[in-house]
């Protein structure tokens, strides 16, 4: 296995400007603050976290839909952070995106045929017969081509979105919460389709999600994000069976499972309060302000370390990297 994508020290800050005549920066929203990860060829790598953790910004920066503030993104060894406009256009064929909201990601005034022909038109390719082949690939019928998006259900629209992403035969597909807007009974259909396509077309997925149940099913490896940084990363079963960062533990313990007996037996690790502002993240460990371990288990001297020293994302003997000075694996599910 070789790395298809290597992300190194990626940073995205949105400046906050003030003043009307003399515009000047008064601070920055630190949406993504120095994260690194690799995507292996053919795997599904999931970025999970709650709203505002920077996972969507990361996804868009990987596709260069957003210009990163610093750091590098290499695609097949080539640094694409510095790629010019024409190189970028060529790269667009290699990496595509599936969006969250199938009601917002399709132009309401274009037919499905128009939507699926567009990738070919943009890149000056022959689209003959391609639309039907794509529809077939995602489980729709050729006669659907003449219809408008509003004539389809959510699940069918998401299939159209998937077909569009597949049109140019990309190697990498970024899936941004691809099933979270779908009805429960439709999700499994779309997840199965994504898995089938991956096997068939040797796709690599960067899977952005907040729903840990879907992630557990679909991902090979997972990285958990909190306030713009990765706090823990591991192969999927490892992460769910032996989470070692207190945030990962809280996240896993908070997800309800559809099994009354298990629910009765589980204990919840509750975190207090809300996510702090990414403009002014806490010093040291960013999670310490809400961390149940910090509040209940650590001595004052230990707490001081959390306040002073940002924990590195390294393996502290738990079998996988975790950004907690006092990482300790726990069994929660």
């Amino acid at each position: 296995m070789t790395a298809l994508v290597e992300v190194e020290n990626l940073v995205k800050h949105y400046p906050i400007r003030s003043g009307i005549v003399f515009r000047h920066d008064v601070g920055a929203v630190r949406a993504v603050d120095g994260i690194s990860f690799d995507l292996e060829q053919g795997e599904t790598f999931a970025l999970v976290g709650e709203s505002g953790c920077g996972k969507s910004t990361t996804a868009r920066a990987v596709l260069r839909l957003i210009e990163p503030t610093s750091g590098s993104i290499r695609f097949e060894g080539e640094d694409i952070t510095t790629a010019g406009a024409s190189r970028l256009r060529a790269l667009r064929r290699e990496m595509q995106m599936i969006f969250q909201d199938p009601f917002a990601s399709l132009n309401p005034r274009m037919t499905v045929r128009g939507i699926l022909r567009e990738p070919f038109t943009i890149h000056g390719l022959d689209a003959d017969g391609k639309v039907e082949a794509l529809l077939n690939m995602v489980g729709l019928l050729p006669e659907h081509a003449g219809r408008y998006p509003h004539e389809f259900s959510g699940g069918q629209r998401q299939r159209v979105g998937i077909a569009r992403a597949l049109a140019l035969n990309p190697k990498l597909i970024v899936c941004d919460e691809p099933v979270s807007a779908l009805d429960v009974s439709i999700r499994a259909q779309v997840i199965n389709l994504l898995e089938d396509l991956q096997a068939q077309l040797k796709l690599t997925y960067l899977f952005i999600a907040h729903d840990l149940s879907v992630v557990r099913h679909i991902a090979d490896r997972v990285a958990v994000m909190y306030l713009g940084t990765i706090v823990e990363t591991a192969p999927t079963d490892d992460l769910f069976e032996r989470p070692s960062h207190p945030y990962t533990q809280a996240l896993i313990s908070a997800v309800p499972v559809p099994d009354p007996n298990r629910e009765r037996a589980r204990r919840r690790i509750l975190v207090s309060g809300d996510v702090p502002s990414p403009v002014n993240p806490p010093s040291g460990c960013r999670f310490r302000t809400r961390c149940p371990k910090f509040a209940n288990e650590l001595t004052e001297a230990q707490q001081q370390r959390c306040i002073d020293e940002p924990p590195a994302l390294v393996d502290r003997g738990e079998g996988h990297p975790s950004a907690c000075h006092y990482a300790e694996a726990r069994e929660l599910v």
Partner: peptide, 21 residues
């Protein structure tokens, strides 16, 4: 909107995005 973002991710030019989407 996401469909404009989708068009950008396909590599569409500004002109195309404005006139088509």
């Amino acid at each position: 909107s996401e469909y404009v973002e989708a068009a950008r991710s396909l590599g569409a030019s500004k002109w195309r995005i404005v006139t088509r989407h």
